[in-house]
Write a protein that binds this DNA or RNA. Structure first.
Lengths: 234, 234
DNA sequence: GGCTTGTCAAGAGCACTGCTCTCGTTTGTT
DNA sequence: AACAAACGAGAGCAGTGCTCTTGACAAGCC
C-alpha cells in the first residue's frame, strides 16, 4: 500500500521516482548530520529544485522524518528476517543469535537511523498507524523462535517468581495476539529479552559503554548468548 | 568547580545567579518542548533580555544543552543515591530495588531530561570530561550493592558460561576501577543488568511498549526484581 | 580624586530554517 | 479541444543560532 507496484500514468511514475529520490537524499543527510541536521531546503537544493516543490511530496519536515522512520523499521526488520530465516529451523540458539546479531549489525551500519527509531522520539509523537506494524516485526520474529523452543511443552525453568496480577491482562493480550501457548512467566522473560537486546545496542551506539567495553561485538555476543540460554535455547 | 561556593565580588555573584536563572528557564523550556524546541532566543525573551546577552554566559546553544545534561546526570544520581542510602545496608534486594525504582521515578518525572542523557546523542558528541563523572555515579551505586552482595565470597551461581578472552582486559579494567573482588562472570552480568535497567525505562518512556504493557510500574518492579534475583540479591 | 581596563546588555545584521501563498506551466482526463 | 488537477518556481513571513559593534557601567590602579 505504501509503494504502488505499478504506477499507471507517467506522472505517477515520475512522482514515485522523485519521492524515492527525496527520501534517498534525506537518508544520506540524516546519516551525515543526524536527525537535527536534516534540512528540507538542503534536500531540495541537492536535487536541484526549490524548497517549496518538496512540499508537494511531503507536507512537512516531520512527515519526511516519519517516512524515514517507517523505512528504517522495515529495513532493520528485513535484515533480521533474512538472517534468521537462513538458519536451520531446529537450531534455536542459532536462530536467536542470528536475529540479534543482524539487528546489531544493521544498527552499527546505520547509527542515525537506529537512533531515529530506538532513541528519543524527535517531534511530538509518531503517527501510530504507520509505524506500529513495521516496528512490531522484530519482536514477532523473536517470539516465533521462542514459540518453537517451547513447542513440545518443554518450557525452560525460569528462576524468577510468578508474574503479579496487574500484568495478567497485558500478557494475555500479548499471548493471544502474537505467541499462543507461552506462559506468563516465559512471556515476561521474553519481553525483558527484547529490552535487553535494544538496551545493549543503544549502550554501544550512544556511547554509554565508552572506556568500559572495547570489543563491542564480543560483549554483545556473550550477553545475548547468555540471554538465549536463559530463555531455554540451546 | 562548577558552582563556586563563595563568589567573592558582587559581579561574580550576580553572574552566578543569572547563569542559574538561564539554566532554570532552559530546563523548563526543555520539559515543555523537548530538546529540539530549546531556543536560546526564547530563553532570553523570557528573562527579559536580548539574545546576544545570553552568549556571555553560554558560548553556544550546545554548551547550554551540555550544562543541562550534566545537571540531569547529577540530578538523577542524587535521586538514586538518596533512595538507596535510606535502606538498611544488609537488605541487599531492598537497596537494589530502591535504587532502580528511584531511577525510573526520576525518568518518568523528567522524560525530556532523561531522553537527553539516555536517548540519542543530540549534537555531535559530548564533552567527555564534564559528563563522564556524573554519568558514572549510578552504575557505581549499583556496583557497590553487588560488591556487598558478594562480599563474603558468596558469589551466586550464574547460569551462563565463562566470558570469552577478548573481554578479559575490559572487565579487569572495570574491576580495578570500580568493583574489586567481583568475578568476570559476575561483572559481565552486572553490566547487562545496567543495560536492562536503562532499556526498560527507555522502552517505557519512548513508547516501545505501547499497547503491550499498561501497568508500567508493576512490569518494571517485576522485571527488576527478577534481575536482582539473578544477581544473587535476596 | 581621575583613568584605564574589563565586563556587560543592547542592537543590527548574516545566513539559515520550516512553511505558505501566488503564479504560470505541464499533464492526464473527459 | 476544454477543463481540472498536479506541478515547479519564486517571493515572502516569522523564526533560529551566531557574530560584531556600540555605549554604559563597575572594579582596580595611579
Amino acid at each position: 500500500m505504501t509503494a504502488d507496484s505499478a504506477p499507471r500514468t507517467a506522472r505517477a511514475r515520475v512522482r514515485a521516482e522523485l519521492t524515492r529520490e527525496i527520501k534517498d537524499v534525506a537518508r544520506r543527510q540524516l546519516a551525515e548530520h543526524g536527525s537535527a541536521g536534516l534540512s528540507l531546503r538542503a534536500v531540495a537544493r541537492e536535487l536541484g529544485m526549490v524548497s517549496s516543490a518538496v512540499y508537494r511530496y511531503f507536507p512537512s519536515r516531520d512527515d519526511l522524518l516519519t517516512a524515514l522512520i517507517v523505512d528504517a523499521y522495515t529495513d532493520i526488520a528485513d535484515a533480521v528476517d533474512a538472517a534468521e530465516s537462513g538458519v536451520r529451523r531446529s537450531d534455536l540458539a542459532g536462530r536467536w543469535l542470528a536475529a540479534c546479531r543482524a539487528a546489531r549489525r544493521w544498527a552499527v551500519a546505520h547509527p542515525h537511523e537506529y537512533a531515529l527509531i530506538f532513541g528519543s522520539p524527535v517531534p511530538g509523537y509518531r503517527a501510530p498507524t504507520d509505524t506500529v506494524d513495521p516496528a512490531a516485526r522484530i519482536p514477532l520474529v523473536l517470539l516465533a523462535i521462542l514459540a518453537d523452543a517451547t513447542g513440545g511443552g518443554r518450557a525452560p525453568a525460569l528462576a524468577h517468581g510468578p508474574v503479579p496480577r496487574p500484568l495478567h491482562a497485558d500478557l494475555k493480550r500479548l499471548r493471544d495476539a502474537a505467541a499462543p501457548g507461552l506462559s506468563d512467566r516465559y512471556l515476561a522473560r521474553a519481553l525483558m529479552a527484547w529490552a535487553q537486546l535494544v538496551g545493549l545496542i543503544s549502550f554501544e551506539l550512544f556511547g554509554h559503554l565508552h572506556n568500559v567495553v572495547t570489543d563491542y561485538e564480543a560483549h554483545f555476543d556473550y550477553q545475548l548468548r547468555a540471554v538465549g540460554l536463559d530463555l531455554g535455547l540451546g
